[in-house]
Amino acid sequence: MDDGLQSIGVFAARARLSAKALRLYDRLGLLSPAYVDELSGYRYYRADQVERARLVALLRQLDMPLARIAEVVEADGAEAADRLAAYWADVETRVAGQRTLAEYLRGRLSGRSSEMYGKFEVGTVDVAEQVVLTETRHTLADELPAWIGASLERLTAAARECGGVVGAPFVVYHSEVSMESDGPAESCVPVADEAAAREWLARHGRTWETRVRVEPAARLAFTRITKAQVAHPQILAAFEAVEEWPAGRRLEVAGPCREVYFADWDAAGPEDAVCDVAFPVR
């Protein structure tokens, strides 16, 4: 055995870690001993492994997932720093969202719900029956925005072969979409020609859970918001404002909630693009 190796006890003291932590890092593949005695099972480390051991411990204090810790410690110099920066940017985005959610919940718990809902102007609109080309998916909240954009792009391209798009695209939430609940959600694009849409579907099969259906005429209770308000929990407050709308107490919710997007949604800025959040009512 190399005389330059240190026992796990000596190495743990130098790295300011416990032997238990070193065994965990070994088991996780983050820091393996330089040598393991086959007979005794004793672990030995090199002095130049101290820096890696301390780095792993510090990254663990950031609540960094083990897989991302491995990416950082295996990278070199600037790349490792960039990986850490990317992780921390994700953390700050998540914490900012949680901070906003906490403020929203404080308002609800303190009885200020009506004050929050009063920020939204709610009305009703009658929507005629329409043929829609749809795509349905079970998805969690973190994947939802990307899927909505991609699915509506696919459906819009298909609609051009079915007489064109004849109404605002919308997404129906058949059940809650959150980090614990995966819906499903259904992207919908109104098309001009039902026969052409069904022919298109027959040619393309059921890729992406696509289908054609007739959306019945309905009265929608809705409020209009900007793209900047779509982030959770602002959009949650908008939906609840529609549900708690005073006039809505004389109406009965008749279907799942939805978001209706307008033509300039993707191109416009966060304060200019608008969508309706709505419930069918009767």
Rank of each mutant, 00 (worst) to 15 (best):
M1N: 09
D2Y: 10
G4T: 15
L5H: 07
L5K: 10
V10G: 12
F11Y: 11
R14I: 11
R16A: 15
R16M: 15
S18D: 10
L22T: 02
Y25F: 11
E38V: 11
L39P: 09
R46M: 05
D48P: 14
Q49W: 09
R52A: 15
L55G: 07
R68D: 15
I69F: 01
I69A: 02
V72A: 03
V73Q: 04
A78T: 15
A80S: 12
R83P: 03
A85R: 12
A86F: 06
W88N: 08
W88T: 13
V91A: 07
E92K: 05
T93L: 12
A96M: 05
G97Q: 13
T100P: 00
L101H: 09
E103D: 15
E103W: 07
Y104E: 06
R106N: 13
R108C: 13
Y117L: 00
G118E: 04
F120C: 00
T124A: 11
E129T: 10
T136V: 03
P145Y: 06
A150T: 05
L155S: 02
T156H: 04
A159L: 00
A159T: 03
R160C: 04
G164P: 06
V166Q: 05
V166N: 02
G167D: 03
A168Y: 06
V171F: 00
H174E: 14
M179V: 13
D182Y: 06
D182N: 13
A185D: 08
E186R: 08
E186Q: 13
A192D: 08
D193I: 06
A195E: 15
R203Y: 03
G205V: 09
T207V: 14
W208D: 15
T210L: 03
R211T: 12
V214A: 06
V214Q: 07
R219V: 07
L220P: 01
L220N: 01
F222Q: 12
R224W: 03
I225L: 10
P233N: 04
Q234E: 14
L236P: 00
A238Y: 01
E243N: 08
E243H: 14
W245K: 04
R249Y: 08
L251Q: 13
V253T: 12
G255Y: 02
C257E: 13
C257V: 07
E259R: 00
V260W: 00
Y261E: 00
D266V: 04
P270K: 07
E271F: 01
C275V: 03
D276E: 13
